[in-house]
C-alpha cells in the first residue's frame, strides 16, 4: 500500500488526536499556570509544598511503591512456577490468573469493601466465633490490599509472557555450566525477564499512584491520596487551576518514572 493517497487516511485520526489529546493537555497546562483571573502564576504548582497536598502525594507514592513491590513479589514466583510446569498460553490454569483482569475493577473493590467493613463479612465471621472485631477498613493497609488485588493480573501477564519466551536451552546451559538455582535465577532468568517486569511495573505503578477510587472505597475518606485531592479540586471545590497545577506535578512524576524505567526496557512487545 505505497500509493500516495493512503497518507490522507491518517487525517481523521490526526484531527481527532489534536482535538482530544493535545488541546486538552494544553488546557491543563494553561489552567495549571494561571490563576482564576487568567494571569500567569506558578502558585498552583507551588501549592504542592503545602502539607495538605504534599502529604497525599507522599502517601500515594509510598502505598503505590509498596503495592507494586508486593505485586512483583507475588507475580514473579507465580510466573516462574507456571513456566516450569509448562503451562502454555492457552491452558486453563493460565486463564484462571488472567480472568480477573476482565472483571469490572470497581466491582472487585466492592468485594473487598464487603469483606473488610466494620459490619462486613470478616468481622461477622470473627464475632460468630466470639473473637474480637478487627478494625480493617479505612487503613492504609486496606488500600494496599485493594491495589494489589486490583492490579496483580497486570503484573502476572507481562512477566509470564516474557518468561515463557525464554529458551529452555539457555537455562539448561547455565545449569550445565555449574550454576545453581539461585545463580541461574539472578543471572539468567531475571535479566531476560526485565522487559516483562518493566511493563508490569508501569501497569501497576501509574494507576495505583493516581487512583482515587480505591482510596475512597477502602479508605472511607480517611486516607487521602493525591488522586483524591485532584478529584476533589475538580468535582467538589471547582478549583480547576489548583487541580490542573497538581496534575502537572503528577505528570512530571509519571514522566520521570517512565524515563527511568525505559532505560531498562528494550521492546514494546511485552505490553500486548
Amino acid at each position: 500500500m505505497k500509493s500516495k493517497g493512503t497518507r490522507y487516511l491518517a487525517l481523521p485520526y490526526i484531527v481527532w488526536m489534536c482535538g482530544f489529546i493535545v488541546i486538552p493537555l494544553l488546557l491543563v497546562l494553561y489552567y495549571g499556570l494561571t490563576d482564576r483571573s487568567g494571569t500567569f502564576t506558578f502558585d498552583n504548582v507551588r501549592k504542592i509544598m503545602l502539607a495538605e497536598n504534599f502529604r497525599p502525594l507522599y502517601l500515594a507514592m509510598g502505598l503505590s511503591a509498596v503495592s507494586t513491590l508486593l505485586c512483583f513479589l507475588i507475580a514473579f514466583p507465580l510466573a516462574l512456577i507456571l513456566r516450569s510446569r509448562k503451562v502454555g498460553k492457552g491452558s486453563f490454569v493460565a486463564f484462571l490468573f488472567i480472568l480477573p483482569m476482565w472483571m469490572n475493577s470497581l466491582l472487585r473493590i466492592l468485594a473487598w469493601q464487603t469483606l473488610l467493613e466494620r459490619k462486613g463479612v470478616i468481622n461477622g465471621i470473627l464475632s460468630s466465633l466470639h473473637l474480637p472485631e478487627q478494625h480493617l477498613i479505612n487503613t492504609p493497609a486496606a488500600i494496599v490490599l485493594g491495589m494489589v488485588y486490583d492490579f496483580l493480573p497486570f503484573m502476572i501477564l507481562p512477566i509470564y509472557n516474557t518468561l515463557i519466551k525464554i529458551d529452555d536451552n539457555t537455562i539448561n546451559a547455565a545449569y550445565d555450566l555449574g550454576a545453581g538455582f539461585r545463580e541461574t535465577l539472578l543471572r539468567i532468568i531475571l535479566p531476560l525477564s526485565v522487559p516483562g517486569i518493566v511493563s508490569g511495573v508501569t501497569m501497576v505503578f501509574v494507576p495505583t499512584l493516581t487512583t482515587f477510587a480505591i482510596s475512597n472505597m477502602l479508605g472511607g475518606g480517611k486516607v487521602f491520596l493525591i488522586g483524591n485531592v485532584i478529584e476533589q479540586e475538580f468535582m467538589l471545590n471547582s478549583n480547576w487551576n489548583l487541580g490542573s497545577g497538581l496534575s502537572l506535578i503528577l505528570m512530571v512524576f509519571i514522566i520521570m518514572s517512565m524515563a527511568l524505567l525505559s532505560r531498562y526496557d528494550n521492546g514494546e512487545d511485552a505490553i500486548l
Binding site: 494507576p207 487541580g243 503528577l250
Partner: peptide, 8 residues
C-alpha cells in the same frame, strides 16, 4: 494517568 486524561 487516567485521571489526567479524564480531567484534560
Amino acid at each position: 494517568a487516567d485521571i489526567v486524561t479524564g480531567i484534560s
